[in-house]
Each structure stands twice: as C-alpha cells, then as structure tokens.
Write a protein that binds this DNA or RNA. Structure first.
Lengths: 166, 166
DNA sequence: TTGGAATGTCAACAACGCTGACGTAAGTTG
DNA sequence: CAACTTACGTCAGCGTTGTTGACATTCCAA
C-alpha cells in the first residue's frame, strides 16, 4: 500500500478533505469578494441588493424587469422594493418598451453610472490583484471550476451575459 | 493593431472585461454553491447560519464560542441566537472548559453530526462533480485565486483550519 | 373577446445581520 | 484581597433582504 492505494491515483484531488477545503475557500473568498462594495454602501441607504441591480443594469442596459428577475433569482416584490428606491433617488430610469408596451427597459442615469463605477472599481481592484497574484493559468482554472459549479439554468444566464457583454 | 496592442501581451487576462466575467462567475457560482444545503434546510427551522455553525463545529470539534465568532465574523448576539436553537434541539453540546472554565467547548451530538453529514454530502457532491469536470489543474488554479481573493485576516483563518484539519 | 404575460403594490412575515446595555462567572494582576 | 478584564449569555430594538398571498393594470395574442 505504498502508493496506488486509491482507486486511480490521479484522483486524489477528489478526496473529501480536498473538497472540504474547496468549500471553505469559497466561503472565505466570497466574504472578501463582497466586502469592498459592502463597505462603500454602508452609510448610504443601499445594500448588496442595490449593488446587484445596478451591476446588471449597467451590464445589460435596456434590460427588462422580468429579465432582471430571472438573473437575480428573487421575487418581483423584493426586486421592486430595490428598484423603487433607485428610481426615487434618480439612479435608474425606466422607459416603456416600444415593441411591447408592458415592458419597462431599465437604464442607469449618470448618477447611477457613477455609483456603479465606484462599486465595480473597488470590486475589480480586488479581483485584479488576486488574478495578478495567481497568474493566467490559475485564472483559467478558477473560471472553469466556477462554471462547472453553477446550476445549468444559471450557467446559461451567465454565458448569455458573456455574449452580449459589449 | 493586429496583435500586441496591449501594454504587455501576457496581461490580457487583467482587462476590465475579464475581471467582470470573474465577478459574475463568483456571483452565479456562489448561488449554486449554497443552493443544495439551502434546499435541505428549508422546511426545517434552520437556515444558512445554522449550516455554517454546524460545519465549523464539525470541522473543529471542541472549538470555543469566541473562536467560532472570529471564524464566522458575526456578532455574539447573532451567533447566540443560532447556537441556542441548536442546543435546544439537541444538535450541539457545550462542555465547560477544563483549563478556563469561562470557555464553552462545542461539539456535535449524533443528531447534529447526522445533519452535518446530510448537508456536506450535498455540498460535496456538487463540488466533486465540478472538480471532476474541470480536472486537477483547474482545481489548483481555482484554489489559488480564491486564496488570493481573501482578506489577509480571513486567509489566516482559512489556513489555520487547513493545518488542524484532521 | 378572453386569457395570460409583464408589471406594480399592499400587507405580513422570517432569517439573519446589527447596536446598545446589562449581568455573571472566572481568570489576572496590582 | 480588590480591581480589572475576559468569555459568555441575554433582553430589546432595528434594518436589509428574502418570502407568500392577494389584487390591479395594461397590453399582447389567439
């Protein structure tokens, strides 16, 4: 039992202990991932939910409420509460759809775009430094594993964003 | 401007667009990451906070309340609410410290261990399938980037867990 | 015209963060 | 021993963000 005691020795990275470390890495990394925007938003009347809305409206200008709902995976009541404050504060603007007048297309105002920039600058700074420290090959692996971890439905959403992402 | 239009051509993985994709990958992957345990816990009177407590008590049996507080990064009031229900339901047990009687050392009961297993089996299954699909090299990169993304303080916690991790 | 889709809104509630304040037991130090 | 500090518990109150359920409006489509 010197070596080769496991089924097929290239599979040591699939041991429960390795998987557990991956789980904990996700937990701690996600904390870091959200901490910079959270810090910026605290004190303003906004939170993580506002950040997400602003992010995806920036990402896909003109997206509809329903589309945003399916990306964010929350109820319309929950999203609506967030959108209302963003309208009221003049960060987001809704234009009635041309083709389908029931739809409301969402856009950031200049003020909204300014907030989005502040938030995403902070978040990108952390990603950039992590990416730089890890190197391109690690980044490739990072993205591969994350994609494999998504629910198929969410993966489609994610990949959909990629394409129309400018 | 055919190729080589960027400062130093190995750095294309640091463009804003690449970073944005990484950010979105974290967002969607984390949703998948938490969804299986969430599904199991819904209906029981527990939530994500209970899962985290149970996870780290399993991981470091005999850990103290204070230690758990620093790992989870929440207030004692918040943690206490969670621990109380776990005590009441007989999932977690506290033993007064021998050396320092102010400390309470936390352990899972059999019932608690059973819940932990159910939750971590589900979560590991997802990780395992993602790891398998991505391959060992990608997994290596995944872990490297996540570690680089953590706050230094949290990274120490994470690495501390690694060592005493069985 | 009738049904369903897209959206808004009111009300109530739950989970889980937070702060502030107070209490108690037990170590530690002067 | 007295005084301070640490580890923990607890009460009360509050904020964000998620949930259901119910109801209204507008408008596309069959």
């Amino acid at each position: 039992m010197a070596e080769g005691s496991s089924p097929s020795d290239g599979l040591l990275f699939l041991t429960d202990e390795q998987l557990r470390k991956g789980i904990e890495a996700m937990f701690f990394a996600y904390r870091g991932f959200t901490s910079d925007p959270d810090r910026i938003l605290e004190g303003m009347d906004y939170g993580r939910a506002h950040h997400r809305a602003v992010h995806f409206i920036h990402r896909s200008p003109g997206t509809t409420v329903g589309n945003l709902l399916s990306i964010l995976g929350v109820t319309k009541q929950s999203l609506n509460r967030v959108l209302r404050t963003l309208f009221d504060d003049g960060l987001v603007e809704a234009r009635v759809g041309k083709a389908d007048k029931r739809e409301r297309h969402l856009f950031l105002t200049d003020k909204g775009a300014a907030l989005e920039r502040m938030l995403s600058d902070a978040q990108r700074a952390r990603m950039r430094s992590a990416y730089r420290a890890a190197g391109p090959q690690a980044v490739q692996g990072f993205r591969t594993v994350l994609e494999a971890m998504m629910d198929p439905e969410l993966r489609r959403q994610y990949q959909g964003l990629k394409e129309n992402g400018q």
